[in-house]
Write a protein that binds this DNA or RNA. Structure first.
Lengths: 146, 146
DNA sequence: ATGCGTGCAAATCTTTTGCAGAGTC
DNA sequence: GACTCTGCAAAAGATTTGCACGCAT
């Protein structure tokens, strides 16, 4: 995803496509995990020394409001963000604390169908995601789902 | 769940069963949602004026370490706790912000089996839970799953 | 009696806010 | 040019910490 594409995406959300915002969005995409405002700031700062942490916080919340990104569910008490906005699932590693995305359309479809046949009253389901809590066998290796 | 039972549970976790801890655990059980330390403190304070907020924070973390309770996944950046320690699923209501527990052994079993047949490398699955994001149709009514 | 737990207050960390100036459309 | 966004610094909010005393075992 390049500079112009990101710029267009931000504009489409009704936000001004400033350099800071483009860099923040780009960084969120580039980082494989689900960073906090601080983590994005640290990553951006060297190449953009004048950027302020407050701007990163404000920008991320503006993106959430504009439906460009999402907040991520965490148990660490920090606000974390994800550039993916489609429903997808997560694997939480209990030893390394990593959160790895994974997508399994077959599984999601099955669960959706399952709930369609259940008797759930008073709510309209928007989306379903699966959280797997797991232990890494070899902490040096990557987690692979296929 | 009564005073003596809770006392025994806390002792079994290797912690001293003080009055404060018993009251905190009891309150966490009594509250239907997933409270923060502040919320528990506010609820406890009237009947226990000398209790301190710091103690509530410390106690909750001690309970987490002792596997008596769990931290809950949230997107609000606050640390929330749950007295349930078994794997269960959540329905998150996008308009009222409620988080409702629900348990569906059949669904959980099916998902577990599904993953047993998948090729997931380098992790050992500990537990699986499903997060449903939903909209309440009648905000005055309760959410029912059966 | 011993050591863990409590209460208090200060410290720390995270996130929000107000405002003047800068940049986008 | 109008209005939004940025950067800075201060404020607010959430959580942790240190320590002297108290209480459970």
């Amino acid at each position: 995803m390049n500079y112009e594409y990101i710029k267009a995406k931000i504009s489409l959300a009704g936000l001004k496509a400033t350099h800071q915002r483009i860099v923040i969005y780009d960084t969120l995409l580039a980082l494989g995990h689900h960073p906090t405002a601080e983590e994005i700031y640290a990553r951006i700062k060297p190449a953009n020394p004048s950027i302020s942490l407050g701007t990163v916080y404000k920008t991320l919340e503006a993106f959430v409001t504009g439906l460009l990104i999402r907040r991520v569910l965490t148990a660490d008490g920090l606000m974390r963000y994800d550039a993916r906005t489609d429903a997808h699932s997560h694997i939480y590693c209990v030893n390394t604390q990593e959160i790895v995305d994974f997508n399994d359309p077959e599984l999601h479809q099955w669960i959706e169908d399952y709930f369609r046949h259940k008797n759930i009253r008073n709510i309209k389901i928007r989306e379903i995601s699966v959280q797997i809590s797991a232990e890494k066998i070899d902490p040096a290796e990557r987690i692979v789902v296929e």
